[in-house]
């Protein structure tokens, strides 16, 4: 039996309990995400410490301009997401729709730029595995760097795609007149997820793009 959206589920006493449970559940989910990406960051850090030269060189193959623009794009999407939460709380339907749409647009731009970068790396023969045709010193470790580049940014991009799908669902729900006022919770939870994905990128950007710039 599908309950009307945002209504009180039978296991809860009141909406406050339901909302608090949802927020706590989301934070616990984000903790699992921290640890999931954390395993990757730990592996990255170990190899960076054992092969500093390769990491330095690998980093120089990345495009700081594109990475920097993407960082700004993602931060902008976080702003519009935060504004969307505010609009939902204040029952401003048009503002909610506009900010959700902007967030989706920024997210799509980010993925588009990421795709261009991936394509450049493919052309340069820097995609690990059988496409790795790049010629230079210490290829094994350079390949290891790019392995981590692709796994980490790929995992991040995957999370963005999931986020975009959820945002699209929120747009449809808004058009049906939900998510406003007391029913803003799904927007807030999506916002938590979206900001978390932003935080991951905030670390990925310097660790991948910037570590080899000096010297």
């Amino acid at each position: 039996m599908p309950e009307p959206h945002g209504a009180l589920a039978q296991q809860f006493e009141d909406l406050e309990q339901q909302h608090e449970s949802a927020t706590l559940g989301m934070w616990l989910f984000l903790i699992t995400e921290i640890m999931f990406f954390g395993g990757l960051f730990a592996a990255y850090a170990v190899y960076r410490s054992t092969h500093p030269e390769a990491w330095h060189n690998g980093s120089r193959h990345l495009d700081v301009v594109m990475g920097g623009i993407n960082t700004a794009v993602l931060i902008s999407s976080s702003l519009t997401m935060a504004l969307a939460v505010r609009a939902a709380q204040l029952s401003k339907k048009t503002a909610l729709l506009a900010n959700l749409a902007l967030t989706i647009a920024f997210g799509a731009v980010f993925l588009g730029i990421k795709a261009i970068e991936y394509h450049h790396k493919l052309e340069a023969g820097l995609v690990p595995g059988r496409f790795f045709t790049y010629v230079g010193p210490d290829l094994d470790h350079l390949q290891l760097f790019f392995l981590f580049y692709f796994i980490m940014t790929g995992m991040h991009a995957f999370h963005m795609v999931v986020g975009l799908v959820v945002l699209a669902v929120l747009v449809v729900m808004t058009l049906k007149g939900r998510l406003l006022g007391d029913f803003y919770k799904p927007v807030e939870l999506t916002g938590l997820y979206w900001h978390f994905v932003d935080v991951v990128w905030i670390f990925l950007f310097p660790l991948l793009y910037l570590i080899g710039r000096h010297g």
Binding site: L28, E33, M35, F37, G39, L40, G129, Q143, L144, I151
Partner: peptide, 25 residues
Amino acid sequence: QVLATPVVAIALLLVMLERGFGVGI
């Protein structure tokens, strides 16, 4: 369960990637 399981998930995922794509993680 919440704090530890994601780490083995990423470890197994890396094994699968390494095996599937023949790269050396």
